[in-house]
């Protein structure tokens, strides 16, 4: 188990973060060094001012009202997933530092209950959206246009989320954020160490597997269609050029 954790939750973390950061930087560099299309590609109606365009870009990217109008269920799944993923990301910031105010407001037990609820909701929403996407992608016209990349990403995401949910639902009341924080801060200090509460319990396997999927997901991220996280801002801006 020690070796598994060493690979996925120590060296894997370092490697995947390095690849992710370098990969995204390379993508953005590639885009920014390719000359723009001389032809304006905007469509109407479009805002007259730069500020108007900027806000329309934000609206088109983060709310996508047109997509809602044409396919509400797909929009709902995508929104649920992205908001839950953002929530989960914010929740994971506790790995670095306990939230300010909240624990003193809720008390230690209250904080654990809050984390359990918010984490559970986010985890279930993400899982639901992923299952919806798997179902969608394996049927009808969606299946025909899908390529292995689509399935690989869904599989990696499924692994990340199912193991995250596993830790939330099975070990949520046993192992708390403070324990994981001890491990994560040790990584950040480049003095990797695992608290005994982790290594002495079966949660070590869950954490190791969660991290295995996270590592693979982050490594593949910059080389996949997931670059839409950054690129959608640019392409939606071009819409009102």
């Amino acid at each position: 188990m020690e070796t598994y954790l060493q690979i996925t939750s120590v060296w894997g973390v370092y490697l995947s973060i390095a690849v992710f950061v370098a990969g995204m930087a390379w993508r953005i560099w590639e885009w920014s060094t390719t000359p723009r299309s001389p032809i304006p590609l905007g469509m109407f109606p479009k805002p007259r001012t730069g500020t108007g365009r900027f806000f329309k870009m934000l609206k088109d990217t983060f709310i996508a009202p047109q997509s809602f109008r044409i396919e509400p269920w797909m929009w709902l799944a995508a929104m649920a997933f992205h908001i839950a993923a953002l929530g989960a990301f914010v929740g994971h910031l506790r790995l670095i530092h306990e939230f300010p105010f909240l624990p003193s407001l809720l008390g230690e037990a209250g904080m654990n209950t809050f984390a359990a609820w918010s984490g559970s909701i986010a985890g279930v929403l993400m899982l639901g959206a992923i299952l919806f996407w798997i179902a969608r992608r394996t049927t009808g016209p969606y299946k025909t246009i899908s390529v292995p990349e689509d399935y690989l990403l869904l599989a990696l995401l499924f692994g990340v989320v199912i193991m995250g949910d596993h830790m939330r639902f099975v070990y949520g009341s046993i192992v708390h954020a403070a324990t994981y924080r001890e491990w994560f801060l040790s990584l950040l200090a480049f003095k990797p160490a695992f608290p005994v509460e982790l290594t002495s319990s079966n949660v070590a396997f869950s954490l190791g597997t969660h991290m295995l999927f996270v590592d693979l997901f982050l490594i593949y991220f910059p080389f996949s269609k997931l670059v839409h996280t950054v690129g959608a801002l640019a392409s939606n801006y071009v819409r009102s050029e």
């Binding site: 993508r27 590639e30 885009w31 920014s32 390719t34 000359p35 723009r36 299309s37 001389p38 590609l41 997509s67 044409i70 396919e71 797909m74 929009w75 995508a78 016209p141 969606y142 025909t144 246009i145 899908s146 390529v147 689509d150 269609k225 670059v227 839409h228 690129g231 959608a232 640019a234 392409s235 071009v238």
Partner: peptide
């Protein structure tokens, strides 16, 4: 061009565009 590259890199094949196209809607041909 930058725009072409982004269009080719970004598409998630979500197929929300499916029912936007009159030709697809009329023929149901992928």
């Amino acid at each position: 061009t930058r725009q072409l590259k982004q269009y080719l890199d970004l598409c998630a094949r979500c197929a929300i565009c499916k029912d936007a196209c009159h030709q697809y809607v009329a023929t149901q041909d992928v």
